[in-house]
């Protein structure tokens, strides 16, 4: 019996917690955080390179007000962003839409990074395992792992060992 009371109590607590928020979602004024959640993904053409959520101009303040108005009307984030794209163009989006020429913005950086990594790996590999050349003559040298070279290295190692 006690357990039932506990369950009912818990249910009432859950309803009490969520009910006011659900009831006021339609009518209440959206908070600054709600507005900024969308605003930070938009840029006003008046002040390029400044996200809408931190832009101090009057134009941007009016845009944020428009977002607040649309949130209060029950519009979703996607609907609001689409409104801004329709009204001001795709240039207002922080993340350009993945279509046409915009694909370059998504493809070029990873390709360049991959290319750079490839070159770096190659350069490091060559650096770690260098070949040997004879200075001055320009002629090709015997490879580093040749008998002569090995003998020389072995003698050098032995000499060093003796000196320790």
């Amino acid at each position: 019996m006690k357990r039932h009371f506990f369950l009912i109590g818990a249910l009432i607590a859950v309803f009490a917690f969520f009910w006011p928020a659900g009831a006021s979602a339609q009518g209440s004024t959206p908070s600054d955080d709600d507005v900024n959640r969308i605003a930070r993904e938009l840029y006003c053409p008046v002040c390029e390179n400044t996200p809408l959520d931190v832009c101090p101009t009057q134009a941007c303040a009016e845009w944020r007000e428009q977002i607040r108005l649309m949130l209060a009307e029950g519009k979703t984030d996607a609907e609001i962003k689409q409104y801004f794209v329709d009204y001001y163009g795709a240039r207002v989006l922080a993340e350009p839409p993945r279509q046409g020429f915009n694909w370059l913005a998504y493809l070029v950086p990873p390709v360049l990074i991959a290319l750079g990594a490839f070159v770096l790996v190659r350069a490091l590999r060559d650096w770690v395992k260098p070949g040997v050349t004879e200075a001055g003559t320009g002629e090709s040298e015997p490879p580093a792992d040749s008998a002569e070279s090995d003998e020389y290295i072995q003698r050098l190692a032995e000499e060093l060992q003796k000196r320790r």
Binding site: D126, P130, G131, V132, T133, E134, A135, G136, E141
Partner: peptide, 8 residues
């Protein structure tokens, strides 16, 4: 005979 690294 001097030896130097060959950069590949």
């Amino acid at each position: 005979m001097s030896v130097q690294q060959q950069k590949q």
